[in-house]
């Protein structure tokens, strides 16, 4: 016998089974990215096409390196959770599951590769 009542189990969870957690994460990460992205665009844009030495010098400094790491991490978390909503809108069953797995996997690979690269450059 379960001691939790149905109401207690359902409260705040809704059809998504996780309540509004997903939507709330999108809000939190979007506000974070709103602060991070403009500065990053200019730092990355200046480094791009400026040659090896200059690009290396830019991302050896702590601020650009930390900012780049944050943009890659928060940006890709925001990406795979956002892409998931689109997948759930138009795909069902196994296709849906595989597409979500592929998106999450790709995001984690890019996060790991990006942070590895930045750490190697900066340290």
């Amino acid at each position: 016998m379960r001691y939790l009542t149905d109401r207690k189990r359902a409260e705040g969870k809704g059809a998504a089974h996780s309540g509004t957690e997903h939507h709330w994460y999108m809000i939190v990460s979007s506000v974070a990215l709103a602060f991070l992205v403009p500065t990053f665009l200019f730092i990355f844009g200046r480094a791009l096409g400026s040659g090896y030495e200059s690009a290396l010098a830019t991302f050896e400094s702590p601020f650009p390196a930390i900012l780049a790491g944050l943009v890659i991490f928060v940006g890709l978390q925001h990406f795979h959770k956002g892409a998931r909503v689109a997948i759930e809108d138009y795909a069902q069953g196994t296709t849906r599951k595989l597409l979500i797995m592929a998106t999450v996997g790709l995001s984690y690979v890019l996060i790991a590769a990006g942070i590895f690269a930045i750490a190697k450059i900066a340290l």
Partner: peptide
């Protein structure tokens, strides 16, 4: 735009890996 940005991000991560 949100989904398409993955292309630019892949290129950017490749660029960082190459720089490293």
């Amino acid at each position: 735009t949100g989904n398409a940005l993955i292309v630019g991000v892949i290129l950017m991560v490749w660029w960082f890996l190459a720089l490293a």
